[in-house]
């Protein structure tokens, strides 16, 4: 067992979290190794040397906590009746401004409109021909009752 593993097991032993197999392994190591025992003593000495913690909070801590909670609650309650009407007013204002500033999109200039119309007429989609063929095939299938779908 290396020192790191030994220390882990000693720490888990101190915290009462050793699994049975770990407990057996640690006991064997401590029994066999004076270094391991010395290491455990060091760890215990450190734990024992830890200075005592501060005594406690101010005597009126609970009263001050209660006062802060009360104050926070009051400010929340004070805020609550205000935010809904404020939100409604903001929404109404936004709607009003939207209506007032709304302008319909201007019609395209005559030259542009004519160009678009020409383009529509002149342009033919190459896929159109394929779709037409497919349409004809589907009609043929519908007309021919002996047609097997596998022929597709």
């Amino acid at each position: 067992m290396n020192p790191k593993q030994l220390e882990q097991l000693l720490l888990l032993e101190q915290s009462g979290e050793l699994a049975p197999a770990q407990r057996r392994a640690l006991a064997a190591e401590l029994a066999a190794s004076p270094d391991a025992r010395r290491f455990r003593d060091q760890l215990r000495a450190l734990a024992a040397a830890v200075p005592p913690p501060a005594a406690g909070p101010a005597p009126d801590a609970a009263a001050r906590i209660a006062a802060r909670l009360q104050r926070n609650r009051k400010s929340l309650l004070a805020f609550r009746p205000v935010w809904k009407p404020a939100l409604a007013a903001a929404a109404a204002l936004a709607l009003l401004l939207g209506i007032q500033t709304f302008r319909p999109a201007p019609a395209p200039a005559p030259v542009v409109a004519a160009a678009v119309a020409n383009a529509d007429e002149e342009w033919t989609d190459p896929l159109d021909a394929d779709f037409t063929e497919l349409e004809e095939l589907l009609y043929a299938i519908a007309a021919d009752e002996s047609f097997e779908i596998s022929e597709l």
Binding site: P53, A54, G56, P57, A61, A62, A63, I65, A66, L69
Partner: peptide, 14 residues
């Protein structure tokens, strides 16, 4: 609340 604060004050404050 005072009782709760009292109960846990030592470990938490420490």
């Amino acid at each position: 609340l005072g009782q709760l604060v009292e109960k846990y004050k030592r470990p938490l404050f420490a």
